[in-house]
């Protein structure tokens, strides 16, 4: 599904990501871990088209996306969430989500001027899609609430729903469980599993080890921009390189 070949990104003279090759299977949950500054976020930004790779290729279902703009990649079916969720706080949850399906619509200025049938139909579609996504993340009852009034964990779920409304094949989740308590983390993990069960390929960056170990089908470990290991959670736990380079150097993350 996602195939990365010899991916390298240089900033100035420094390699943030260096010669990383990896393949993620469809419908799987894939985690990227590594100490701070290991290049995880850069890796995400490369896949989603925020940064252009210095060298190497990124293939999604066989299509080379390494030179595409962010919005083009999104249209190909890559959805993502960010570490901090920027929602429009003064609007309702549903209002925040409707634009999520915009990329699958074609209405332009002319449609707005004449209030065309197409515009009306597409607006209905966007609304339905937003409701469906909200229902998927378990927040259907919140659709008319103002974002300002909902909890941190609910905001995370709304951000998931926004990414899902784009109808992605692959979702990139950047620290989805940051800033939520253990019970809520468990709930988010269940939601992520549900995404995979519904046919999505999930790729996440996370620091919460117990969550990752219980959730991921496959883990890739980055350190100083290089891939030092990949495998199942059990393999990663037993890998001496990982223990030395990562777990050994960062007790907090291992705890």
């Amino acid at each position: 599904m996602l195939k990365v070949e010899n991916l390298t990104k240089m900033f100035g003279g420094l390699a943030a990501v260096h010669d990383v090759s990896v393949e993620f299977e469809a419908r799987g949950i894939n985690a990227i871990i590594g100490p701070n500054g290991a290049g995880k976020s850069t890796f995400f930004n490369l896949i989603s088209g925020v940064h252009k790779p210095t060298s190497g290729r990124i293939l999604i279902d066989g299509q080379d996306v390494s030179r595409m703009r962010c919005d083009q990649v999104a249209r190909l079916g890559v959805g993502r969430t960010f570490q901090t969720t920027h929602l429009f706080e003064q609007a309702t949850v549903l209002d925040n989500l409707i634009v999520g399906h915009r990329l699958r619509t074609r209405s332009g200025l002319w449609d707005v001027l004449v209030n065309s049938r197409r515009l009306q139909r597409e607006e209905r579609e966007c609304r339905d899609k937003a409701r469906a996504a909200l229902d998927f993340v378990g927040l259907a009852h919140l659709e008319n609430r103002v974002v300002l009034d909902i909890s941190q964990e609910e905001r995370k779920r709304v951000a998931f729903a926004l990414a899902l409304a784009t109808e992605p094949k692959l979702v990139l989740l950047d620290e989805p469980a940051a800033g939520v308590n253990p019970e809520e983390t468990e709930g988010l993990a269940r939601l992520i599993r549900k995404m995979a069960e519904h046919g999505l390929t999930v790729c996440l960056i996370e620091h919460k080890m117990d969550m990752i170990m219980g959730l991921a089908d496959k883990i890739m470990v980055l350190n100083y921009g290089e891939k030092i290991a990949e495998g199942t959670p059990a393999e990663i736990k037993a890998d001496p390189t990982v223990i030395e380079a990562y777990l050994g150097s960062d007790h907090d993350a291992a705890a």
Partner: peptide, 21 residues
Amino acid sequence: SLLGRTFMAIRNGDALAQSLG
């Protein structure tokens, strides 16, 4: 309209808007 919502998504942040295609 959807177009207006698109503009408002850009106001909320370039990065997020782009990730929405």
